[in-house]
Design a protein around this nucleic acid. Sequence first.
DNA 1: TATTGTTATACTCTATAACTATA
DNA 2: TATAGTTATAGAGTATAACAATA
Lengths: 157, 157
Amino acid sequence: MASRSSPRSVPSPQGELSPVDGLVQLSFLIQNALARRAAEHDLSLIQIRLLGVLRDREPNMNELAKLLELDKSSVSGLIDRAERRGLVGRVPSRADGRVVLVRLTDEGRALASKVAPRLEADVAKILGLLPATASEALTSGISRLLIAHAGEQRASL
Amino acid sequence: MASRSSPRSVPSPQGELSPVDGLVQLSFLIQNALARRAAEHDLSLIQIRLLGVLRDREPNMNELAKLLELDKSSVSGLIDRAERRGLVGRVPSRADGRVVLVRLTDEGRALASKVAPRLEADVAKILGLLPATASEALTSGISRLLIAHAGEQRASL
DNA sequence: TATTGTTATACTCTATAACTATA
DNA sequence: TATAGTTATAGAGTATAACAATA
C-alpha cells in the first residue's frame, strides 16, 4: 500500500492569528497528527474511524454507512479493502438473508488496540504543550463548544 | 465533478469526553464545516487550500509542493485539474527555463474571494456558540497552543 | 551532473446508477 | 414492490519511479 497518503501538515501560525484561523489551523494540526500516526500502520483516517466504530459494534452495511456518513457503495469498497487486509470480516445475518454484518477480526482488533493509545498519546502531547491550567481551560472550552454544537444539531432536526 | 466528497461529520459528543477526544472531535467538526462549504462550490479541501495559498503568492511548482506538503507529482495533478477549471494558470519563468510559476486566474481569485468569507463565517458561527468570555478564553488557549507547537517544530529541525 | 517539472502507473476513497437477491 | 448490498464506472487525490528539458 505504497500509495497511502503521507503525513502532512499546514502552514505554521505566523504573526497575528484571527480566532477563526486559529481554530482552522488547530483542526489541521490534529488531523495531520492522526493521519501521520495512522499512516505508520498503513491506515487512512477513514480506516482508523472504521476500526474505532467496530470496536464496540457489529453493524450491518447500512448502519455502517450511516455511522460513517458515506454512501453504501463507498462502504462496500471500504470493507472490501479492509477485508482484503484481514482487518474485518463480513458475516451474513441469520435473521435476514439480505443483511451483512461487519465485525473486526482478531487482527483488526489487535491493530485498533495498538493504534488507539498512540493516537491518544499524540493528541495528549499536543495538549501538553500548554501548562496545566491553560490546558484545562482549553479543554473545558472545547467541551462546552462541542456540547453547545450538539445541542444546536439536535435543535435543528 | 459529481464525485466530489459530500459533506460529512462525526459522532456527536456523548456522555463523558476526554480532553483528547474533545480535541479530535473539534478538529472533525471544523474540517467538516470547511469541506461542506467548499463542496458547495465543487471544491475539495486541498483545492481551497490551494486557492488560499495563491491569494498572496505566485510560487513555482516546487514551492507549492512544499507549501502544501505534497509530492511534486501530486501538485502537477492538482494544478492540472485546477487549470482545467480555469482557476489557476501556469506561467513559465523567464529567469529559469525549467521553472513554472502558478497564479490565480481572475476567475480563481473571484472564487477565492467569494468562498473565504463564508468559510470564516462558518467557523465564526461555531465559535459563537460560546459566550464571549468563554470564546475569548478558548481562542487565547488555541493561540498559545499553536505558538507553542510552532516553537516545538522549529526546535526539532 | 543536478534541478525542475511532467508522465506513467497504481492504489485509496468517493459518488451515481444499474443490478441481484431477499423480504 | 421495497430493501440490502454489490458492481460498473468515473473522477479526485495521492505516491513512487522513470523521464525530459534546462541549468
